[in-house]
Amino acid sequence: MLGYKELPFEIMQTGEFYYDLMKSGRIKIVRKIKDPVTLQDPCNIIRRAGASEKFRYFVNATCENFTEMTPNKEHNFCCNAGGGLAGLSNWAAHKARGNRVKAQQIKETGAKVVITPCHNCSTGIKDVIKYWDLGVKNVFFDEILVQTMDIPETLKVGK
């Protein structure tokens, strides 16, 4: 690809990276998110990189109450901000209207928090939440991880 036949390094999304960290024990989860959560499967990472099981491992490890959207994994619906549509803020209503199915999906899970592992999805889901007035919030993996992981006290200043 582009002059490199075989890359001498791995490419991964942060979600996959966090999965590796958790699997190898470099990060320990000490708390769990109590709110009901659901997961938006990003097309680029699930359908085009097959990370669905890793993401489920992450979510199950960090959240107590996880409900899947239907359909999920590689059958998920796009957030309507992928494919370069994320930047189109003047089309936000048009995009959100075009994703009523996502709003229904989120509503059906009864979740209070939608985990969006990708920035595009975050934009798209935010638009959907706002337009369809779903009363839920969306968070990233890193936010969840910072809240739930064990940060040794010895690392902190003044200890």
Partner: peptide, 13 residues
């Protein structure tokens, strides 16, 4: 093509 398709590959599937 720019505002009504997300290139999500679901249709190919």
């Amino acid at each position: 093509v720019f505002t009504e398709c997300n290139i999500c590959h679901r249709c190919s599937m």
